[in-house]
Design a protein around this nucleic acid. Structure first.
Length: 428
RNA sequence: GUCAUCGUAGCUCAAUUGGUAGAGCGCUCGUUUGUGGAACGAGUGGUUGCGGAUUCGAAUUCCGUCGAUGACC
């Protein structure tokens, strides 16, 4: 299902310094179309890209949508999605789809709950402070609102508090009902505040779960081929864990990489400034002929790091989430449209952007910062829509440009030019 | 004109029998990386209409004054 077209040239220009690079351009074939990689998958957790119609999502250039197992299981229920004809039909998206397994919710509703940790660790290096956090975190895991067991994970619904039990088999079953083209193995997404001992324990559990997911997935696909007149079996990706630990990351890549998955997800937490190191550890080990998805990463600088180091697909809520809250990407960095200076600024959001929000190519005047400022200040829904279109276009297109630059042998020049402007001279 | 009620942050309002002024919204700034997030955090902001009096101490009691609202002449 995955084909590599071209690799970042090791000899390509002085910027590469003759180093070997893992980055590549390729294609993933799904039964709902081809994903040209590297590609950014937009996130539509509950079978909708928040604030946008599927037509708008398509128009801004998105190729693939990622939805979430846990959320769709809770509402409206995976059986309803199945009855609707699957995720794509249900939400009126005819392109490729992915579902995440619910493994991230083990983190976000578990040790990440009610705390300010995210999967990117950008916090203190103070050893005592870290020790305190690790202690607090593991205390929480003992008595928190989720319980992690060998068999699976006990959840409490964030909607009504009702109890639910997810096993690897259950997650795969739900994902088959939802019916995305690519599904993920059920894993445990760990926190940056987990101790090494816990990371290892969780990683080994994730590996055992990966095995169970694969077996159950094959069984369901086998049944599907026998019964359906138009079988469209999904592909399954295994997930590499191991946190920010070199030994564990390598071990996980080796173990998961050796299993019979169609591709791989790279999950868990990262150190903000060391994402590239982790990716080199992992992607040097994963079989290169299979595709790799970096879960939940989507800041421009991180996307460059991912593409350079062999990531084929990404997904991230950042573009849509920050858009709804008034932050927008521009070629010269992020701006908060709610800042006072934009009230009277009648310039375009981004002079260099061709999206619906910024460009007059769409049959009218482009929207001004002053207008967007007004929409956000008065909490008008259109603000979220225009900002989401812009941010998604910005990110989806950025990755497309990276793809083209690899084809043109200008990846490093493009990276230098883009980040030079985006970070306004800051070091990267 | 008379009587009543009321004047507290930009706005709407709090403040136990007098103990030295708070909230929500707004405003300013920040955060957001497999969506518990159209969310969250921080900051700014008042000689309590004005002038007196009583008291150790007044947004709170008393007198005067200005203003608002209502009722009645």
């Amino acid at each position: 299902m995955f084909r590599i077209e071209k690799r970042i040239s090791a000899r390509g220009g002085s910027a590469s310094g003759g180093k070997e690079y893992l980055g590549r351009v390729g294609e993933i074939k799904t039964s709902h179309g081809i994903i040209k990689t590297p590609a950014f998958s937009v996130v539509g957790t509950k079978a909708t890209v928040k604030a946008l119609t599927p037509e708008q999502v398509k128009d801004l250039g998105a190729e693939v949508v990622l939805a979430n197992t846990y959320h769709l299981y809770l509402e409206p229920g995976d059986k309803i999605v199945k009855s609707a004809g699957g995720l794509g039909k249900f939400m009126n998206w005819d392109g490729p789809t992915i579902t995440d397994s619910g493994g991230f919710q083990v983190f976000s509703l578990g040790s990440g709950f009610d705390s300010d940790v995210s999967k990117i660790n950008n916090q203190t290096n103070d050893v005592d402070e870290l020790a305190k956090k690790i202690y607090k975190n593991e205390e929480f895991l003992q008595k928190g609102s989720i319980k992690i067991k060998e068999e699976g994970v006990e959840f409490k619904s964030h909607i009504d508090g009702s109890p639910h039990f997810f096993t690897p088999e259950k997650s795969i079953e739900i994902q088959h009902n939802i019916g995305a083209d690519i599904i993920f193995a059920f894993d445990e997404c760990t926190s940056p505040n987990n101790s090494e001992k816990y990371l290892e324990e969780a990683m080994n559990r994730t590996h055992r779960w990966a095995d169970r997911c694969l077996i159950h997935h094959k069984k369901l696909n086998f049944d599907l081929r026998k019964s359906a007149s138009d079988p469209r079996p999904s592909a399954i990706y295994g997930i590499v864990q191991g946190g920010n630990n070199e030994k564990l990351r390598k071990e996980s890549a080796k173990t998961i990489g050796a299993m019979d998955f169609n591709g791989f997800g790279i999950g868990g937490s990262f150190e903000k400034n060391d994402i590239d190191k982790s990716l080199v550890w992992i992607n040097s080990i994963l079989p290169e002929e299979k595709s790799r998805h970096l879960l939940g990463i989507g800041e421009p600088i991180d996307l460059f790091i991912g593409v350079e180091n062999g990531i084929d697909t990404f997904d991230c809520v950042a573009p849509t989430r920050i858009a709804r809250n008034g932050t927008m990407y521009t070629t010269s960095g992020k701006i908060n449209i709610l800042n006072a200076k934009y009230k009277n600024d009648f310039s375009k959001l981004d002079e260099n952007c061709d999206c619906y929000t910024c460009s007059s190519r769409h049959g009218g005047a482009s929207y001004t910062k002053a207008y967007l400022s007004h929409l956000f200040r008065s909490k008008e829904m259109l603000g979220a829509t225009l900002a989401s279109i812009h941010n998604l276009y910005f990110i989806v297109n950025l990755v497309k440009k990276m793809r083209q630059s690899i084809l043109d042998d200008t990846f490093f020049e493009f990276k230098r030019d883009f980040l030079g402007k985006y970070l306004k001279g800051e070091k990267y």
